[in-house]
Simulated assay, not measured.
Amino acid sequence: MKSILLSTAIVAITATFATADGHSVVRMGTEGAYAPYNFINDAGEVDGFERELGDEMCARAELTCEWVKNDWDSIIPNLVSSNYDTIMAGMSITDERDEVIDFTQDYFPPTASAYVGAADGADWEGGVVAAQTATIQAGHIAEGGATLVEFATPEETVAAVRNGEADAVFADADYLAPLVEASGGELVFIGPDVPLGGGVGMGLRESDAELKGKFDAAITAMKADGSLNALLVKWFGEDTAQY
């Protein structure tokens, strides 16, 4: 396998450039605000499940990769505009998104979304429910009987419950679980789990079929040798869905 460069820094959004050996850099777009999928660590670097998985996928595909941080609400438009080449940001595969961009196969199995409130009796059905904007969770709430209040970041959705601005937050159960555990009873799961989406996959431009094929091959290999399951357990625990 040829040597590769895996950047440990968050790079600014720039045009694609060539490395010294003439190969293009693949820019990996992420939000950096959705632990444990992706987050910014104390060193100011992209970290988390998707960082570790993405680096391994790049290594197996013999690609030179760097990480780019981008806000969630513009993450698809900036991919389409070629400000980076992939999205690894806890993004669920949906038919609506698939009309705009392409996806690899899922690297996180379809999983549940969940409600969290400040008390067991919090009104998740008809009250005010917070969700991150442009997510499948926000779309689900908008179609139901609750009043949707949207926020740009996942942290703000949870803060809305803590400060009484919302009765509940609706998000990926895997994102909410460590927050509930660490809250010391301040936050509790309420209502039923809701299965949404077709799993989490890497987003790419429709025109990048060759790049998609390389990453799909890496995911397939990691599913086959058990290394993807090992990463899922490492970052989400023994009870997480696996392949």
Rank of each mutant, 00 (worst) to 15 (best):
A224M: 03
L228H: 07
A112T: 14
D167H: 08
V158A: 01
G191M: 00
A230K: 08
G213L: 02
G185K: 01
P110M: 01
A218R: 02
G48K: 01
I87E: 12
C65T: 12
E99V: 10
E238V: 13
A18S: 13
G226Y: 05
F215H: 04
A119Y: 06
A171T: 10
I190M: 03
Y243H: 12
L179H: 08
M88P: 10
I75Y: 05
A159T: 12
E66F: 02
A20W: 09
V116R: 04
M57W: 00
A35G: 11
E150C: 02
A43R: 12
L231A: 07
V200C: 02
G184L: 02
D167C: 04
F17D: 15
A18M: 13
Y115C: 09
A33Y: 06
G164V: 07
L204H: 11
I40D: 07
T157H: 00
L5E: 15
D21W: 00
G237H: 04
P109C: 03
V200D: 05
D73G: 10
G22T: 07
D120E: 15
A9G: 13
A114N: 02
N163F: 06
D73R: 11
F108C: 10
E96F: 01
Y175Q: 12
N38Q: 13
T19M: 15
Y37F: 14
A230F: 06
E165G: 12
D55G: 08
K214P: 11
N38V: 13
M28G: 02
E155R: 13
A112W: 00
G145I: 09
A12T: 13
E238F: 03
